[in-house]
């Protein structure tokens, strides 16, 4: 994805996030159409898991809700395949490692590659455990399926370097401690952290966790290549419907 990310005249790209099957795949479809029409540049589709330890309460609840409504991984992958056919932007899968294990890790990666998924974000598989998965991504993705690494403010410089050495596509920088959905101060501390990330990798950086206003995005555009918007969009969808999600993204940048 690196090339695609670099090849833009926008001052920052927007990556949105949604939980498949929440509130329904029909609704997902409408939201995705709306997001793409409003200029979203990349999209993270989360396959729900019953134990989403790295997600905040709002997204965790969305995971549970989707499962209560009968979400199945096979249907989710079929939905992703259709979505990729319909829209030109890069789509990534975000989920937890157990979903891959249950499917068969190599099978899952093969399937993701064959339907045109551009990246995998698996927050509970640390880099030292991901070696095999990364080489399968390379093998089956033939250069177009990236294993997205996460860097966090608590990571030491040595650790950031390790992560950077194994990264491809872009690096997802977690803006702060805590889970998704809380407020983030995109100030000085963040700038310091991003500086450390730049030393560890030459790849483009995405910054997520708590992005929710044009001000946040404006501030980020001096720091990163991609702003990630998750919980804020789910909230808007819940409170004001699909059309409002489009307006929200159109107004962010």
């Amino acid at each position: 994805m690196e090339k695609m990310i670099r090849n833009t005249d926008k001052k920052i790209l927007l990556m949105s996030h949604l939980v498949l099957g929440y509130p329904s795949m029909q609704a997902n479809q409408e939201v995705i159409d709306e997001m793409v029409a409003s200029g979203v540049d990349l999209m993270e589709l989360q396959i729900p898991f019953s134990e989403p330890i790295a997600d905040g309460p709002m997204i965790a609840l969305a995971n549970q809700n989707a499962l209560d409504n009968g979400f199945k991984v096979k249907d989710g992958l079929e939905f992703i395949a259709q979505t990729i056919k319909k829209h030109k932007i890069p789509f990534l899968i975000m989920t937890y490692y157990n979903i891959l294990m249950a499917y068969g890790v190599e099978e899952f990666i093969k399937e993701a590659a064959s339907i045109g998924v551009k990246g995998l974000i698996i927050p509970d598989l640390p880099p030292q455990e991901a070696t095999q998965a990364i080489s399968w991504c390379k093998e089956h993705g033939e250069g177009s399926l990236d294993w997205i690494q996460l860097m966090t403010p608590t990571s030491s410089d040595v650790r950031l370097q390790e992560i950077g050495n194994n990264a491809s596509g872009f690096v997802y920088c977690v803006a702060r401690k805590g889970v998704t959905g809380n407020d983030t101060d995109f100030g000085n501390e963040l700038a310091q952290f991003i500086k450390r990330c730049r030393v560890a990798t030459s790849l483009p950086l995405a910054v997520g966790f708590g992005v929710k206003s044009p001000q946040d995005v404006a501030q980020l555009s001096n720091l990163a290549e991609i702003a990630v918007v998750g919980t804020a969009a789910i909230k808007i969808h819940e409170e004001h419907g699909v059309k409002a999600v489009g307006d929200f993204f159109a107004g962010l940048r």
Partner: peptide
């Protein structure tokens, strides 16, 4: 066994 934790907890 192992330690399958979000990166943010690695140092902890």
């Amino acid at each position: 066994g192992g330690a399958f934790i979000p990166e943010i907890l690695h140092e902890t």
